[in-house]
């Protein structure tokens, strides 16, 4: 009797363990699926900055984020220093800012790290992240210690250069 009980308990133990694995796999599956769904609308506004986005967002919730309104807020305009002021960069799905020549926005300034910061799109918003730069990144005059979302009018400063999202 006890032997049979122990056997059943042992099967129960194995069942719990395998059930745990099943839940783990399900969690991973759900996560990957959500990620893929979230990833679908991302490239659309970045790839086609000129369209109004309405047609390409058939199934998505009504766009409220600044990126989708029009092409407003999808450009970086250099404000200072005067030598390069007025230069405009179109934002890509990911725009890197830094001193290195393969950055999307190359800034010739000794206080700017090789790959200093990046602006990328996440859930219909632009997000600025400092990439571990030596001298830091300022957003609207406060130090960026954490990726932050930005919209039109926000100012990003790296070294002596101030870029405005327009």
């Amino acid at each position: 009797m006890t032997d049979q009980l122990l056997f059943l308990l042992r099967l129960g133990l194995l069942a719990i363990v395998y059930l745990t694995f099943f839940r783990v796999l399900r969690a991973v599956w759900v996560e990957l699926r959500t990620e893929n769904r979230a990833a679908v609308p991302v490239p659309v506004p970045a790839a086609m900055p000129a369209t109004n986005g309405a047609s390409s967002h058939a199934g998505a919730p009504p766009p409220a984020a600044p990126v989708d309104d029009s092409d407003a807020g999808s450009r970086l305009v250099v404000l200072t220093p005067p030598a390069v002021a007025g230069q405009v960069f179109e934002l890509q799905a990911e725009t890197t800012i830094g001193r290195a020549s393969d950055c999307a926005v190359v800034i010739d300034d000794a206080r700017v790290s090789k790959v200093h910061a990046r602006i990328f799109e996440r859930d219909d918003r632009w997000v600025v992240e400092d990439l571990g730069s030596t001298n830091g990144t300022l957003v609207n005059d406060h130090v960026l210690d954490h990726p932050e979302s930005v919209g039109p009018g926000d100012r990003i400063q790296v070294g002596e250069h101030v870029l405005e999202l327009a």
Binding site: R122, H146, P147
Partner: peptide, 10 residues
């Protein structure tokens, strides 16, 4: 995981 919080000032 990027934890997005609105930038101060916007």
């Amino acid at each position: 995981r990027v934890l997005i919080r609105p930038a101060k000032g916007t």
